[in-house]
């Protein structure tokens, strides 16, 4: 529990959504404090897109409900980064200006100029990465207080990824907005996000403040062994030729005797461990 009282940004209760042949989201419950930058992480098909689309208001859930801050302005950038291919970025921004209650033309246009996106070339002639920038500009121009991004970095080159992440957060997060960003590329999230939502097969595996989550776990590494020398719930283990690794949930940093070593858990360790544990089988 956090000691600091934070305003609830999103409160999700028992959210569920199924399609004809599959369940996309099952009994999801979590609270995301306002102003957080949350990573929504999970394997392909884990329900990330469904959760974001429900939160955006475009999809009605089958079960459960969610509440946003009163007066929350939501912007959603879908995975496909859709823009009208027969229109130019300039016109796409004009459409967005008409369709939004709040619009900051200078901000949206500045975003496109910063990334050298031609304003008067049809979107169909732009590259995937450039179209992503147009979709992002629409979201930024509407000055959201809740920004939902579905795989925002997928079509961008490595350099642009870093720049987009940095600029996006300074544009949006610094204004106190909440950001939820889905991805399956965990490595790029370190230092950017401060909250984690981990989904597998439509079920929420873990959620909470990133530092707290990571601090509550350790990676115990040592010679090949059947059991971890550290007390606590073993969330994941891996056994190599001469080595065993255990991811253990423990409230305090344990003391182990050599040759065992206790390492802090990185975001990548944590996510990969939890996801590979679910892949092996039991998600109830």
């Amino acid at each position: 529990m956090t000691a600091v009282v934070e305003t609830a940004g999103i409160a999700v209760r028992g959210l569920g959504k199924g399609y004809r042949s599959s369940v996309a989201l099952r009994d999801c419950t979590f609270d995301l404090p306002a102003g957080r930058v949350a990573a929504l992480v999970g394997a392909n098909g884990a329900g990330k897109t469904t959760l974001l689309t429900v939160l955006s208001g475009l999809l009605r859930p089958d079960a459960g409900e969610f509440t946003l801050r009163p007066g929350e302005r939501v912007a959603f950038v879908a995975q496909e980064k859709p823009v009208y291919k027969h229109l130019t970025p300039r016109v796409v921004l004009q459409l967005a200006a008409r369709l939004n209650l709040v619009w900051d033309q200078a901000r949206a246009q500045a975003w496109l100029e910063r990334f050298d996106i031609p304003l008067d070339r049809r979107c169909g002639q732009l590259s995937g990465g450039q179209r992503t920038q147009v979709a992002l500009a629409v979201a930024i121009g509407s000055r959201p207080t809740l920004l939902l991004l579905d795989e925002p970095l997928a079509d961008l080159d490595p350099l642009a990824r870093t720049e987009v992440m940095r600029d996006l957060l300074s544009e949006v997060a610094d204004s106190g907005a909440t950001v939820v960003m889905s991805t399956h590329i965990v490595t790029e999230l370190s230092g950017v996000v401060d909250h984690l939502l981990l989904l597998a097969h439509g079920t929420l595996l873990a959620d909470g403040d990133l530092d707290e989550l990571l601090a509550a776990h350790v990676m115990v590494v040592g010679p090949r062994a059947q059991e971890s020398p550290v007390r606590g719930e073993v969330l994941w283990d891996k056994h190599l030729d001469g080595q065993s690794l255990f991811l253990v949930r423990t409230p305090t940093t344990p003391v182990v005797s050599a040759p065992w070593v206790v390492r802090p858990v990185s975001l990548e360790d944590y996510v990969l461990a939890l996801l590979s544990a679910t892949r092996k089988g039991d998600v109830a």
Binding site: S56, L58, V92, L95, N100, S142
Partner: peptide, 14 residues
């Protein structure tokens, strides 16, 4: 073309 996600994702209902 998935553009409904753009058109309906602003402040106007579908």
């Amino acid at each position: 073309l998935r553009t409904h996600l753009l058109a309906w994702g602003q402040d106007v209902s579908a």
